[in-house]
């Protein structure tokens, strides 16, 4: 009797195991299950993509390979055929990319705000500025140090546009430090040099430094993220179907809800806002 029970139990366990494996989506249906997503550091280093990735993979059966770099470099990876899908934030560079025939359309799907951070005592007095351009003008006029990404990233492009709006060309100035690096290192340099810098909010909150958030949510500091599926015309082995599946998923109600919730637990506020 006891032997019989053990056999029964084992059979049940085996059945359970089979049921478990059968539950995972059948990968065989998808021709090419790997999607190479080239993206900007702000969405990867802030933890947003690592947070969305398991949901996407469980829902669709695709596998996401994420590489992150400044927007300029991220787009370049798509140009050289090393990516299937782009998630970046520099409108003018994106439009150039599409103009060259590498992608069909850019689909803006979420946004947040850039922030201006700097030393807590705010020597240039930018706290009272109404816009980012005014704040930059105050920094330039006071001769306070400013650290620039200097790497053609989305944040760098935005920074250059704000300088233009403010009517300054600081590239050759003594107080302008161009580091040609990612957001993390730029914040480290700004912290060490007691300087101002422009950052995306997510990276700033995740970075360990003594800088203060001095200016945020001005209208000229909006930061829009877009998706572009790369056409298979230039590079034959581009996983176009996979890119479209990713775009469809991340613009679905479920994913947008996840994006709106991200960051609330850790920082008390969302880091990204979906556009619907």
């Amino acid at each position: 009797m006891r032997k019989y029970l053990i056999v029964c139990f084992t059979c049940l366990m085996l059945l359970g195991l089979i049921a478990c494996t059968a539950k995972t989506p059948p990968a065989a249906e998808i021709e090419n299950p790997v999607i190479r997503l080239s993206t900007t550091t702000s969405v990867n280093d802030s933890g947003l993509l690592p947070y969305l990735q398991p949901h996407f993979e469980a829902d669709t059966g695709y596998k996401l390979e994420i590489t992150s770099a400044g927007t300029g470099a991220a787009i370049e990876k798509a140009r050289t055929g090393d990516a299937d899908c782009l998630l970046v934030h520099a409108k003018s560079s994106e439009e150039d990319f599409i103009g060259e025939g590498f992608g069909e359309e850019r689909l803006p799907f979420m946004f947040n705000y850039f922030v201006i951070v700097g030393p807590a005592d705010d020597p240039a007095g930018i706290k009272d500025a109404a816009t980012a351009a005014e704040a930059f003008a105050a920094i330039a006029n006071s001769g306070s140090k400013f650290v620039s990404r200097g790497d053609d990233s989305g944040t760098h492009v935005k920074e250059k546009n704000i300088w233009k709006d403010a009517g300054f060309d600081p590239a050759e100035e003594d107080w302008y430090i161009s580091v040609g690096a990612g957001m993390g290192q730029t914040l480290t340099v700004a912290d060490e040099e007691l300087a101002y810098t422009l950052s995306d909010k997510a990276t700033f909150l995740a970075h360990d430094n003594s800088l203060s958030l001095l200016k945020e949510e001005a209208e000229d500091m909006k930061n829009t993220y877009s998706l572009i599926a790369i056409t298979p015309e230039r590079w034959e082995d581009t996983n176009h179907a996979g890119a479209l599946a990713f775009i469809e998923w991340i613009t679905s109600g479920k994913a947008l809800d996840l994006i709106d919730k991200y960051g609330i637990e850790e920082y008390g506020e969302p880091l990204f806002f979906s556009m619907r």
């Binding site: 770099a69 400044g70 300029g72 470099a73 787009i75 370049e76 990876k77 140009r79 050289t80 200097g150 790497d151 053609d152 430090i177 161009s178 580091v179 040609g180 690096a181 340099v189």
Partner: peptide, 20 residues
């Protein structure tokens, strides 16, 4: 890797490669 100041050949190569 500060431009015009401490940017040297190796760090510039790294940066330019990262920028594509």
């Amino acid at each position: 890797n500060v431009q015009y100041k401490t940017r040297v050949m190796t760090t510039a190569i790294m940066m330019q490669t990262n920028m594509g």
